[in-house]
Nucleic acid binder design. Sequence first.
DNA 1: CTCCGTTATGCGTCAAAGTGCATATCGAAA
DNA 2: TTTCGATATGCACTTTGACGCATAACGGAG
Lengths: 113, 113
Amino acid sequence: MASQFTVHGRLWIEGPDGTVLGHGRVELLEKIDALGSLSAAATALGMSYRYAWKLVKLMNEHSDGPLITLNAGGRGGGHASLTEAGREAVATYRQTDREFEQFLSEQSEKLPG
Amino acid sequence: MASQFTVHGRLWIEGPDGTVLGHGRVELLEKIDALGSLSAAATALGMSYRYAWKLVKLMNEHSDGPLITLNAGGRGGGHASLTEAGREAVATYRQTDREFEQFLSEQSEKLPG
DNA sequence: CTCCGTTATGCGTCAAAGTGCATATCGAAA
DNA sequence: TTTCGATATGCACTTTGACGCATAACGGAG
């Protein structure tokens, strides 16, 4: 029988200037990619636009190059999209995260009774 | 050459009623075991006694049985020590944490350029 | 039975994460 | 050139983890 206790964790990637990607930030990137809009992505995640915008700014500043492109004005009011670097960063994080989930469930199995 | 980016993470163990152990709590347990005093342990870790005491209370409540025994009064004013379950919990966490550190450095190695 | 240092616990405070509101700016399309 | 919805950004507020202060209770040793 499995233990009533489980191992949990959080994972993130840091660069020289601070955190680049974490769980929440990657979810935001994926929603931006899916919806083409920062405000729609933030709303979909139950996150305030104000904060989502700050996260985007931080991610762009702390990576080698921008991960997200934001455009104000124009048809539909504006647009948001991922750069090629942004999509690669998401893929890299997801791969790492999959192995982390694997690690966590293995460790949970090992816990004593 | 290694990437300028590195993978970081945090690990903790949850029971049915909430978090039982995390990095800071385990350090506190180890200091209590080494010093025999909660206030000395808290001071040694730069943590307020107030907060350390709350952590001990939470840990004792959220585990199967108490991990820490506290005694007020008596020679030296009082005393704090780990129960057998407490020592086992620390050992379990440390083992998991070692493997986690291993995991993190492996993942950092894998990051692209 | 007094002393002393530790445990026990309430209350106000402080900083950081995140929200909410208000308002300005942008630019393609009608 | 007016319109419209999204981006851009400041400011005040709330929430949460943790501190600091104050004060009581405890109990072996002398």
